[in-house]
Amino acid sequence: MPHRRKCTLGKCCFCISLYCGSILIAFYTIMSGLLNAATLADDIIFRKNLSSDNWVKWFNIGHVCLMIAAAVILLVAVMTPLIYTA
């Protein structure tokens, strides 16, 4: 595959290394997921109007959990050294 190198990026956003960019993206995703979870919990606990369906709330809770889990997996994958078994 001679064109494979043209499709891979060596830097994140063309300005910082891919390693640091992945760590920054993981931390940003974790923080935004936690902020979203706090907002969602505040909305569920303190809202007096029950106009939204239950499945919408469970979908949002599942989405927040999935987003935080994906960010943690990205962070662990980037921070652990690569082990080649070749």
Score class of each variant (00 low, 15 high):
residue 1 M to H: 03
residue 1 M to P: 00
residue 2 P to I: 12
residue 3 H to R: 03
residue 3 H to V: 14
residue 5 R to L: 12
residue 6 K to V: 10
residue 6 K to M: 02
residue 10 G to F: 05
residue 11 K to V: 09
residue 12 C to I: 05
residue 13 C to W: 04
residue 18 L to H: 05
residue 19 Y to P: 00
residue 20 C to K: 10
residue 20 C to I: 13
residue 21 G to H: 00
residue 21 G to Q: 02
residue 22 S to E: 03
residue 22 S to Q: 08
residue 23 I to L: 12
residue 25 I to G: 04
residue 25 I to H: 06
residue 25 I to Y: 10
residue 27 F to D: 11
residue 27 F to G: 11
residue 27 F to Q: 09
residue 28 Y to Q: 08
residue 28 Y to G: 15
residue 29 T to Y: 01
residue 30 I to C: 10
residue 37 A to F: 08
residue 37 A to K: 07
residue 38 A to C: 13
residue 38 A to P: 00
residue 38 A to K: 09
residue 38 A to W: 03
residue 39 T to E: 10
residue 41 A to M: 08
residue 42 D to N: 15
residue 42 D to H: 09
residue 43 D to V: 13
residue 43 D to N: 09
residue 44 I to A: 13
residue 44 I to L: 11
residue 45 I to W: 10
residue 46 F to W: 10
residue 47 R to F: 07
residue 47 R to L: 03
residue 48 K to D: 09
residue 50 L to K: 10
residue 50 L to Y: 03
residue 51 S to P: 00
residue 53 D to W: 00
residue 54 N to D: 14
residue 54 N to I: 15
residue 54 N to Y: 04
residue 57 K to H: 04
residue 58 W to R: 06
residue 60 N to L: 13
residue 60 N to S: 12
residue 65 C to E: 00
residue 68 I to T: 15
residue 68 I to N: 06
residue 68 I to K: 00
residue 69 A to D: 04
residue 69 A to E: 00
residue 69 A to V: 15
residue 70 A to R: 05
residue 71 A to M: 03
residue 71 A to R: 00
residue 72 V to Q: 05
residue 73 I to W: 01
residue 73 I to Q: 08
residue 73 I to S: 10
residue 73 I to D: 05
residue 74 L to H: 02
residue 75 L to E: 08
residue 76 V to W: 05
residue 78 V to Y: 01
residue 79 M to K: 03
residue 79 M to H: 06
residue 80 T to W: 05
residue 81 P to I: 13
residue 82 L to C: 07
residue 82 L to K: 12
residue 83 I to S: 15
residue 84 Y to Q: 12
residue 85 T to G: 14
residue 86 A to C: 14
